[in-house]
Design a protein around this nucleic acid. Structure first.
Lengths: 216, 216
DNA sequence: GCAGAACCTGACCGATCGGTTAACTAGGGT
DNA sequence: ACCCTAGTTAACCGATCGGTCAGGTTCTGC
């Protein structure tokens, strides 16, 4: 089943503490989380079976359900780190004094978030509607609405809201699906980050200007 | 089963030709196509069962499989009109002389396409990767690549390609998921179209300028 | 009246779904 | 030796999956 040689359980090089050198070896739970995330993002939560996750990770379906109470719980554990991170970023932004510097740092933080949690964002963005009721999804939903309301105050125009939506959905798409599909080259990372910064800032700039200063 | 009163088959008001007044009544096949599209776009192709489609449309699963050879064939019939339309738009653009007017008309056509086939685009955009091999998906894939290559010539920068990807994925997201989720108001249609035109043109403008004229 | 096409359906098929249970293995502490 | 815990798995459960099939109903052409 596993690439490892012995027929017993596959990993667990050091049962206590994290390994001294940050080895690339992951715990079984982390392996399963990563595998599940990749499947949820590409095939969808409803379209991914526990058997597929187990096969892809090299375990049995029973093992997946040993580490996670249910499929929904697995989704929850997969998405939670991204939500926590976004919450921190947003809290820091709203508690900072209004100003160009604060806004600039927020956009930087947000782009870091996009790049680090692209699969989680893609999963949420494209499936939140059909997964309403699952606690982690609802929590992420209110967070996104808060993000939207923070950037686009009550009186924001339709165009401002569409700018925000396009930035959010466009980044989620481009960084996952569009990457291996439109940009055949594997992309030089730094170049992507820089280009993303330009375009996202351009999309969000009028919104921010509109909310904190006078129009145009 | 059906909202109609008699227990027999539900619609078929005029068995031959289209009804003289374009009544809102749809043929069974059209009802099923529309229902399936809504489910595919929100829950995903893999996550949507034929039973769900049948229930939502008020028919039996057997009836769905009577009108469509298989689930994949249903997906094909659902997506084909959008692909045909996009193909027409793209052909007209590449066969027209280069120029600002041609580009402007293309963006207009493209926005019409986005608004009319938002569910079809959303379905393709977010699931093409996992549905590779299905003929209609592959056909749409080569079309999108052709669209990308037409707008971004070989030497296009990473930023240009990201602009295109964000415009495409962002519009698909905003017009479907973001609509009932971020913009609580049902949206005044014309306002959405106009805002979309501004933002899409802004995203695509540097690309077009770059490919047909000098930079900036 | 009658044959046939078009339409819709319940019953059924093997496969797979998410999830439960019990059994097994290995290691640590005593 | 002992037990306990953690990890893994096969076997199994009822439900549902996509798909097939035979039969019933209604309409049309003759």
């Amino acid at each position: 089943m596993h690439p490892e040689s012995p027929p017993t359980h596959p990993v667990v090089p050091s049962p206590v503490e994290t390994p001294p050198h940050p080895v690339t070896r992951l715990s079984t739970g982390d392996e399963l989380r990563a595998t599940a995330l990749a499947q949820f993002a590409s095939i969808g939560f409803a379209g991914t079976s526990l058997q597929q996750i187990a096969d892809a990770a090299g375990y049995s379906k029973s093992s997946v359900l040993y580490h996670f109470a249910s499929k929904e719980a697995l989704l929850g554990e997969v998405l939670t780190p991204a939500i926590d991170r976004l919450e921190v970023i947003l809290d820091r932004f709203v508690s900072a004094p209004d100003g160009a510097a604060s806004r600039r740092r927020f956009v930087d933080d947000f782009i870091d978030f996009l790049l680090e949690f692209r699969l989680e964002l893609h999963t949420f963005i494209n499936q939140a509607q059909s997964l309403r009721g699952i606690p982690v999804i609802d929590r992420a939903g209110v967070l996104i609405v808060r993000l939207s309301d923070t950037l686009c105050h009550d009186g924001a125009s339709t165009e401002d809201r569409i700018r925000f939506g396009i930035a959010l959905g466009g980044a989620a798409y481009t960084l996952v699906a569009g990457m291996t599909f439109l940009n055949k080259d594997i992309a030089p990372a730094d170049e992507i980050r820089q280009a993303l910064a330009v375009v996202i800032a351009e999309l969000l700039a009028p919104v921010a200007v509109h909310t904190s200063q006078s129009r145009k």
